[in-house]
Nucleic acid binder design. Structure first.
Length: 556
RNA sequence: GCGGAUAUGGUGAAGUGGUUAUCACCUGAGGUUUCCAACCUCAUAUCGUGGGUUCGACUCCCGCUAUCCGCACCA
């Protein structure tokens, strides 16, 4: 592992800015905190990392890609819990000016202060007047709501509905559950992936790409039947990885061992940890700077059964870049409750269950006119009685005594054959912060060496994510070398998925250095011999080796 | 959001209350050069932004914006 010194960090950010990889957005207007551009080189890098991620998960075979809007109606994020969760009530200490969360200050006075409205919090704060955790003084200002989601309006004027820019992509997978379920012919398990922008109006974005207000996310929602024990093959992962379990206990285990020992509580969570690791290594993360950390029980959302973060070591220390959470049935259930729509899967019983029904129900034609508005509740009450009930009978419905006569009811006797049941699938969710991953792979692939007494830097990106595949360089721009090189360049650019750069300015060594600095894996050099025999030099970034190949035999 | 520091060409830095604001690298043009940042000539900034003090401000003062470091918040 390289040492991540502050000096190296500033050299790296300098190169990334100078070469157009990552740069502060809207700089000519003074910039904007938490917003970054991927420049002419970075744009393709982001795209390739993104596509590699999608292809990686699609290769599982039962995953589908979807794409949902970033503008999201209020109701969706209210149902998901984000409206509540992303609103914090802050208050300032009158003595030292320190901002604190109002609900944290009154923690001892209420069982769930997070759920309280602003007025109630203010009241509790005034009456108890807790000391400031920073200076110890007692005296608090007004409570202010702080929402971390970007507000917007869908539609104009008074007909506009309140909405938010989504704080995560996941909700789209839940709200589209029915169509994904149908797509997979109603057979679990299956998953849906989505990549795209997410927005969080952070109070103070810091540390470059680590904490952004608009960021690239990539999430998989994998739906499973909680009653079927998942079977996964862990044999591919033979290298032990660092695991920090709930409670802080650190161990080295293979993923398979950790599942077997119960350190990882759910096999599917473990399986996706393995897939996550494969992806991170594929795009260029150094395995020595990768570890998994389990959320503490009190840190996890109440519905989560197990949650592991993939943390990557870089210039900013260990940073969480992926979260893999077993979310139970929470999300689908929340949307089901809010909408009344069925977000369930059908489970067929191995053997149909026969239930003998023997009881009573109402005779609609008679009971309807007799009980009018109360008929529905009477029916409910009658169907709750067992077969031994006898009529007439007096029921108390909502404080009203109702006389149910023999003619109002009829016997209900049949065998109910249940072949299966509807259930809410459980969800395992790997969620990736693409920007954080891109930052770390740049950090890990950036290498400073010495070449002939001079500083020399490489970006040793894997060729699968390198933003430029090849540079075409005429040794000199005369005698037709420039023209031949330009032709080769255009031919390469016309091939799907290939990006080539034509560079004829400066000495050949300088141009190799420029290519190395943005991680171009190959350079093609056109020289005098090329004009005679149609061969060129193919030069490798990683070892500097050169081979002579025919133009028609180029490996692109 | 609070406290501290900073803001000068593409990058990293120097510098001064007063005529054409330095240096290195980078980038571009031309020359030279037969494969790893060579060399020569030339070119590129109204010193973050808005205001104030002053005969005169890049330099002093204030607001704003941004960056960095703590705290708080957050994944």
């Amino acid at each position: 592992m390289d040492d991540f010194s502050a000096e190296r960090l500033s050299r790296l950010t300098g190169i990334l800015k100078r070469r157009g990889v990552i740069l502060p957005a809207f700089e000519i207007h003074g910039g904007a905190a938490g917003l970054y551009d991927f420049g002419p080189v970075g744009g393709r890098l982001r795209n390739r990392v993104n596509q590699t991620w999608i292809d990686h998960w699609l290769s599982l075979g039962n995953i589908v890609e979807i794409s949902c809007p970033t503008v999201t109606p209020y109701a969706v994020l209210e149902a998901s819990g984000h409206v509540g969760e992303f609103s914090d009530f802050l208050t300032e200490c009158k003595a030292c000016g320190e901002a604190s969360r109002a609900d944290h200050l009154v923690e001892d006075l209420h069982s769930n202060p997070d759920s309280l409205p602003k007025e109630k919090l203010e009241e509790l704060l005034q009456s108890s007047n807790p000391p400031c955790p920073s200076c110890g003084e007692c005296g608090w200002g007004a409570v202010e709501a702080q929402n971390l989601m970007f507000n917007t309006k869908i539609g104009t004027g008074s007909s506009g509905r309140q909405g938010f820019l989504r704080p995560e992509t996941a909700q789209g997978m839940f709200t589209s559950f029915s169509s994904i379920y149908r797509h997979f012919r109603e057979r679990l398990p299956f998953g849906a992936v989505q990549t795209g922008k997410g927005y969080r109006n952070e109070i103070s974005p810091r540390q470059g790409m680590i904490r952004l207000r608009e960021f690239n996310m990539a999430e998989l929602e994998y739906f499973i039947d909680p009653e079927i024990e998942p079977i996964h093959d862990f044999s591919a992962w033979t290298q032990p990885v660092t695991l920090i379990a709930d409670g802080g206990k650190e161990s080295m285990n293979t993923i398979g061992e950790a599942v077997e020992k119960g350190i990882i509580r759910h096999p599917t969570v473990g399986y996706f940890m393995g897939w996550t690791m494969d992806f991170l290594l594929k795009v260029g993360i150094n395995p020595d700077g990768l570890r998994f950390r389990q959320h503490e029980s009190d840190e996890m959302a109440h519905y989560a059964q197990d949650c592991w973060d993939a943390e990557i070591l870089g210039s900013y220390g260990w940073v969480e870049c992926v979260g893999i959470a077993h979310r139970g049935c929470y999300d689908l259930e929340s949307h089901e409750k809010a909408t009344g729509q069925r977000l369930r899967a059908w489970r067929t019983f191995q053997e149909p269950k026969s239930v003998e029904i023997d009881g009573w129900t109402i005779d609609g034609a008679k009971a309807g006119p007799a009980f009018r508005a109360l008929a529905g509740k009477v029916k409910e009450a009658i169907e709750g009685l067992d077969s031994t009930a006898s009529f007439p009978l007096t029921l108390n419905i909502d404080g009203t005594d109702v006389e149910v006569l023999d003619e109002h009811v009829k016997r209900r006797q049949f065998t109910d054959n249940q072949t299966g049941e509807w259930f809410i699938p459980h969800v395992v969710e790997p969620a990736f912060g693409i920007d954080r991953i891109i930052w770390h792979l740049l950090d890990h692939c950036y290498e400073e060496t010495d070449k002939g007494g001079e500083n020399y830097s490489y970006l040793r990106l894997p060729s699968s994510v390198a933003p430029v595949d090849v540079c075409v360089l005429p040794l000199y721009e005369k005698d037709g070398m420039g023209e031949l090189a330009a032709t080769i360049h255009r031919d390469l650019c016309s091939k799907p998925g290939i990006v080539s750069i034509f560079d004829a300015s400066g000495s050949i060594g300088r141009r190799y250095a420029r290519a190395d600095e943005i991680g171009v894996p190959w350079c093609i050099t056109v020289d005098h011999d090329s004009l005679k025999d149609g061969t060129v030099t193919l030069r490798s970034r990683d070892d500097g080796s050169q081979t002579r190949v025919g133009i028609s035999d180029l490996p692109f």
